[in-house]
Design a binder for these strands. Structure first.
Lengths: 154, 154
DNA sequence: CTCCTCCGCTTGCAACTGCTAGCACCCGGG
DNA sequence: CCCGGGTGCTAGCAGTTGCAAGCGGAGGAG
């Protein structure tokens, strides 16, 4: 019998490859992860960063988000200020949370502080211990990947 | 307790299906996108409820929210669909959180899990947006599982 | 070389937001 | 009676969003 950690690590590998499929790219996403590091000042820049990080064309994102391609182009370049509905659609198309986009757009207050994610998961009584283990292992793997791809310390 | 291997293997299955669902939803989002369109009339009702509950006149709220009174009137009756900025202003005038209003407007999804854990993952800048999405999706699946299997424990 | 497809962008236009000005109504005091 | 001030709502106007149509350019197949 192997240790639970080994199995979990296996699983992390499986998840990671699947996630790469989600991102629309191959396993390279992790290796040569693009520069999502720079903090964008406007929503448009942020959207464009996320889009190019996912290797998605403007038209493709526009289609999957349900907006026209010219309009998305203008939004990304800051020429238009998208409504919240459009913003939510774009967030869905990018598969990121709408809240993040709203924060970028300045219509939602940025969450203050940096609560310890690990502590939050550990103390969450809506999770079993095994589920906590899976989440924590996956979380730490993601953090390692992120640090490797974006070492720029703020 | 069963053997660790069995449990972890169970979870591998769960994780896979969850991540597959995440991947699939990227494509599906296109088809079932329009969930935001008709909901905006409820936000007006909600605003009017909150306002009359606070015994505040329309003009007064309009002034404290920084919008014109006719426009607020139209918003409350569902004749106009306010932008997110206006919505945030109204939320400030009503002294309620913008998130609540956004949920009423249908431009923010209601979250099921422990807010602390969700907030921790969301605000963790050591994660990419896509990784956040996967972790949150997985987390919510676990929470649902937990509630289904042990509802009395809460 | 021609044709085709994809990329992102510019151009006008319908539709909408959010405003100012003004309407009708109700109340308490001169 | 006629004010002045309160309630909410209607009319009409800039300014904006979001779109369809079309542009020039970069590749690939014939």
């Amino acid at each position: 019998m192997q240790t639970p950690g080994e199995f979990v690590r296996e699983q992390v590998t499986t998840v990671r490859s699947t996630v790469d499929r989600v991102a629309g790219s191959v396993a390279e996403t992790v290796a040569e992860a693009p520069s999502v590091s720079a903090v964008s000042s406007t929503v448009g820049d942020f959207i464009r960063e996320q889009r190019s990080a996912a290797r998605v064309s403007l038209r493709e994102l526009a289609r999957s988000a349900g907006v026209s391609n010219p309009y998305l182009s203008q939004v990304e370049r800051g020429l238009r200020k998208p409504s919240a509905e459009i913003l939510a659609s774009i967030a869905r198309g990018l598969k990121i949370s709408a809240e993040t986009l709203y924060e970028q757009a300045g219509i939602l207050d940025r969450r203050t502080g940096n609560p310890d994610t690990v502590a939050a998961i550990r103390s969450d009584d809506a999770l079993s211990e095994r589920h906590k283990a899976v989440l924590l292992e996956l979380y730490e793997t993601y953090v390692r990947e992120h640090r490797a791809s974006a070492p720029a310390a703020s």
